[in-house]
């Protein structure tokens, strides 16, 4: 994925990557792009610099895809997510290259990150048909009712991906959104967007329906306020939010009563196997009171 150095007198193939919206790869509506450098400051490629209108388009795509994805059976969702892990595995070497270039890790440590990301994806794929058993319940009530609670997907979730861990961190916050049946609009790490672009190419060639995941690259501080204010976004993950904007984003999100996962003080250690916190965050519990008797 990185700008290939001249080999045997060949010119390198310069790349300008695009956004991933609604299953397609459009340029930014604004026509803008920005240079992306590797950890040592050398130019890698250009990435699309998304605008607020791209946020709007991505949210429309995510909202449109919501019905199909949330309505898919848990078994089917698990299969689809597992298929993504298969495709990640098939592209492992390329993703390792991306992570090495983006994060400046040794090849060995980058490999560990990519393997962990694939394993994380498989882990969340396994959760799809277990969420309702773990988060749902049949409740004892003092009355002639059968009373039960079941989780339902929150809806469209805006994800500000972690700024540091460009692939594992992204998978760590994105996979639970999909596992619960929500659809996602992701703003990739601003300085390290290329692994996210690689992931979007994996998603486009796996069985994830178009619009279920939408990945924008660009300035997080520019896009986040529009995502936080958009009334069709039902949840907001502030994992990669700029520190100085975090509070304001939460305040904005409150205007339309979004679920918000606050920005952690320091970036989480994504290598640790997560609990069910994110699955809980993107599930709404619906409780049904059903009268008994004839």
């Amino acid at each position: 994925m990185s700008l290939s150095p001249p080999v045997d007198g060949r010119l390198g193939v310069a790349k300008t990557f695009k956004l991933y919206v609604g299953g397609a790869f459009p340029r930014s509506e604004s026509g803008r792009s920005y240079p992306v450098s590797d950890a040592k400051g050398r130019l890698l490629a250009h990435a699309a610099l998304a605008s607020r209108k791209d946020v709007r388009d991505a949210v429309s795509a995510a909202a449109g895809a919501g019905k199909g994805w949330s309505g898919a059976t848990a078994y089917n969702k698990g299969q689809v997510l597992y298929r993504v892990a298969e495709m990640l595995q098939a592209r492992r070497e390329g993703l390792v290259d991306d992570v090495v270039a983006a994060e400046g890790l040794t090849r060995k440590r980058a490999s560990t990150q990519v393997d962990a990301a694939i394993d994380r994806w498989v882990w969340y794929a396994g959760w799809t048909d277990k969420i309702s058993s773990v988060l749902g319940s049949v409740n004892p009530v003092a009355g002639p009712f059968v009373n039960w609670s079941a989780p339902e997907p929150t809806g469209v979730v805006g994800v500000l991906a972690p700024q540091g861990s460009s692939l594992l961190g992204l998978v760590d916050v994105l996979a639970p959104v999909l596992a619960t049946g929500c659809t996602a609009v992701v703003v990739a790490s601003q300085e390290r967007p290329l692994p996210a672009v690689g992931l979007s190419e994996v998603l486009a060639t796996s069985d994830v329906p178009g619009g279920v995941v939408n990945i924008l690259t660009g300035a997080t501080a520019e896009l986040a306020p529009w995502l936080a204010a958009h009334a069709e976004v039902h949840g907001l993950d502030l994992a990669g939010a700029p520190a100085e904007l975090a509070v304001e984003l939460e305040r904005t999100a409150a205007d339309t009563v979004k679920r918000v996962l606050p920005r952690p003080a320091t970036e989480a250690d994504h290598t640790r196997v997560p609990g069910t916190a994110r699955l809980r965050a993107w599930s709404e519990i619906k409780t049904v009171w059903h009268p008994v008797g004839r």
Partner: peptide, 9 residues
């Protein structure tokens, strides 16, 4: 209103 509105509204 200065922000995008959902179709469900």
């Amino acid at each position: 209103e200065g922000h995008y509105v959902g179709a469900s509204y």
